[in-house]
Design a protein around this nucleic acid. Structure first.
Length: 279
DNA sequence: CGTTACCTGAAA
DNA sequence: TTTCAGGTAACG
């Protein structure tokens, strides 16, 4: 579900409304599994109740709540998780799993149909995020950095881009979109891209992610922002979920295959496997 | 490295 | 009934 733009949307929606508030209570929906992996709900309540939310940050697809006393509550929405700020009394969401009740009575609600989402409470933020690759929208992330992390790799470029250690925040939708925008076949060995192809890919990744953030993410199915609103990026997809429809660039029907274990969409004409001159 | 498991529901 | 779903950890 959420990739980096969806998580960033949530962060921007919530930042000004929850930073400075104190967590008054933690509730777990009756009968629902605990939203956080290593802690019981009682231990979580014990640990965070009374703490002030000092900051709301993001790294890759992780949402990071900095709490007073040097604790960090790190949330990963995985496939179907949403974090939504609601007034008390608003009827519960169908897949509500847990609630952080704030000191003004508003509720930070965690809904998660498939229950893959994870909460981690730690005082070692760097340790918890160790191994995450660079932020693709950081000014310091260059085309040369992308080339370096792809160099020598034989895995499909799509698999390399989904690997959070190489670049943080890309997922299935935006990898397909970026590869299409860069006119690169998803099964090309990562290390085989030319300098120009890497430059195009670097630019395409940024353009796709920036546009997705502007449009508050893709609401394919589950994603909603921090105020419960849907995103609009799904209306701008050029290949994702467009199997059989005409490519906007050349009219060729979009194909769907399987790469790196994931449904993969591409235009076979705009993204030929063989580069010019080969074969 | 690719595949499977983790869950639940919607759609084919 | 079967397949698929925005992610990732564990497995072989």
């Amino acid at each position: 579900m959420p990739e980096m733009p969806e998580v960033e949307t949530t962060r921007r929606d919530l930042e000004g409304r929850v930073v400075g508030r104190t967590i008054a209570d933690v509730r777990v929906a009756p009968g629902a599994p605990q939203p956080q992996a290593p802690l019981t709900p009682e231990q979580l309540r014990e640990a965070v109740a009374g703490r002030r939310i000092e900051d709301l940050d993001r790294r890759g697809k992780y949402l990071i709540m900095a709490l007073s006393g040097g604790l960090f509550l790190i949330l990963h929405r995985r496939m179907t998780g949403n974090l939504i700020l609601r007034e008390a009394g608003v009827p519960p969401e169908r897949f509500l799993r847990g609630v952080l009740v704030l000191d003004d009575g508003t509720e930070l609600r965690w809904e998660d149909q498939r229950k893959f989402g994870r909460w981690v409470l730690t005082d070692d933020l760097a340790g918890a995020l160790r191994g995450l690759g660079p932020e693709p929208l950081a000014e310091t992330w260059t085309s040369a950095d992308l080339a370096a992390t792809l160099a020598g790799r034989t895995a499909p470029i799509k698999a390399a881009l989904l690997d959070q250690r190489r670049v943080a925040g890309l997922g299935n939708i935006y990898v397909d979109e970026a590869l299409h925008a860069a006119r690169i076949h998803p099964e090309r060995p990562a290390g085989s891209l030319s300098e120009d192809e890497v430059r195009r890919l670097h630019a395409a990744i940024r353009e796709v992610l920036e546009k997705a953030i502007r449009l508050q993410g893709s609401s394919a199915r589950h994603h909603v922002g921090g105020l419960g609103q849907r995103g609009a990026m799904q209306e701008q997809w050029r290949v994702y979920d467009r199997t059989g429809e005409a490519c906007y660039s050349c009219g060729t029907p979009i194909e769907k295959t399987r790469v790196a274990g994931r449904g993969t969409h591409l235009c076979p004409r705009c993204q030929p496997y063989a580069t010019a001159g080969e074969r």
